[in-house]
């Protein structure tokens, strides 16, 4: 028999991952409500690709396949990536992104527990750089679209890019508010005018804010279940709100406010689901605060001044690079040691 301790608690990796998946469900429901059922196809595609590629890689690496497929981490990556992609993204985009995330960003580093970068965000960033046009082509929320696509039409569109004869691409897509804001500000329009555009909702994107709210709900569930600690969500959201709020106070004509930043793009998804990935994040409490605040600041910088509409993916990847250093320099005081 082994050494002590002989007893152990009840959590396990798969329970943690399952709870994360569960927490994503409200967001997915809201997503379907706002953008139609197309996202379910992406989710399914990504899940299958993730599981198959993970299984194949484990087999190739001569590692036990079952426990690692059952742990649910591949599914979490797949879901996060699928939710970050535009809802009607072509099928191959989803597959390529997931493959990159699982095979390159995760398995080549040794699989679960060893990946220094957030796999979903690696997949996302690779797609964004390689296929910028498709990646920024977001379908309009159903309520705003000039033409409605049924589920069958969406399916058809995803797999063959084919549209019903009477519908043009422009009719179903629209710029996201983040994108729209950026281009309009470049054209010297005032913020107050810009935010009158139909894509804007109460605080963030029309429809999008509902999805974001649902993510927040799921995030609160994770906090309550102690799957994530408060440090990362709070530091990220606070930092983002702080810089956005301060800049919009100083110059309300050119800078969007805190509410807008919190409720558009991938802010909430990042705060509770992406930045909180334990494997690629820091472990010390102070380190978590620093890490998340860094993501918040970079996200705002890239959104406001950078070349991409949303900065979450790059911000997360950049801070991932800093994690070993952050961990090394934020070691908490050990019992009996002076600070």
């Amino acid at each position: 028999m082994s050494q002590s301790p002989y007893i152990s608690g009840s959590t396990s990796v798969s329970v943690i991952m399952l709870k994360v998946l569960l927490a994503l469900v409200p967001g997915i429901v809201a997503y379907v409500w706002v953008f139609g059922g197309g996202v379910l196809v992406s989710l399914t595609l990504a899940s299958i690709t993730a599981l198959v590629s993970e299984g194949v890689m484990l087999k190739l690496r001569n590692r036990p396949v079952r426990p690692f497929l059952m742990d649910g981490s591949a599914l979490v990556t797949a879901w996060l990536l699928a939710l970050a992609l535009p809802p009607l993204a072509p099928w191959w985009l989803v597959v390529v992104g997931t493959l990159f995330a699982i095979v390159i960003a995760k398995q080549l580093y040794g699989g679960l527990g060893y990946n220094p970068f957030n796999p979903a965000m690696v997949g996302y960033a690779v797609l964004l750089i390689s296929f910028p046009v498709i990646m920024t082509q977001w379908p309009a929320p159903l309520a705003l679209a000039h033409a409605q696509l049924g589920f069958a039409d969406q399916l058809h569109y995803i797999f063959s890019r084919g549209l019903p004869v009477d519908v043009q691409v422009d009719a179903i897509t629209s710029a996201t508010p983040l994108d729209y804001l950026k281009t309009q500000l470049k054209l010297q329009h005032a913020l107050a005018d810009i935010s009158q555009a139909p894509v804007f909702g109460v605080v963030g994107a029309k429809g999008g804010e509902l999805v974001t709210g649902a993510y927040l709900l799921g995030g609160l569930y994770l906090l309550q279940q102690r799957i994530v600690t408060w440090h990362i969500p709070v530091a990220f959201l606070a930092m983002l709100a702080l810089v956005a709020g301060a800049s919009s106070l100083l110059d309300p004509v050119h800078y969007a406010g805190a509410g807008f930043h919190l409720f558009s793009g991938a802010s909430m998804l990042c705060a509770f689901f992406i930045a909180t990935d334990p494997i690629s994040g820091p472990t010390t409490p102070k380190g978590k605060l620093l890490f998340a605040a860094g993501i918040g600041l970079l996200t705002w910088l890239i959104r406001t001044y950078g070349g991409y509409p949303d900065g979450v993916a790059f911000a997360v990847l950049f801070m991932n690079i800093c994690v070993p250093l952050i961990d090394a320099y934020t070691q908490p005081r050990v019992f009996g040691h002076k600070l």
Partner: peptide, 11 residues
């Protein structure tokens, strides 16, 4: 890492 730094493009 280079991929992450591409996010700074245009800043």
């Amino acid at each position: 890492m280079s991929l992450a730094f591409m996010g700074f493009a245009g800043l």
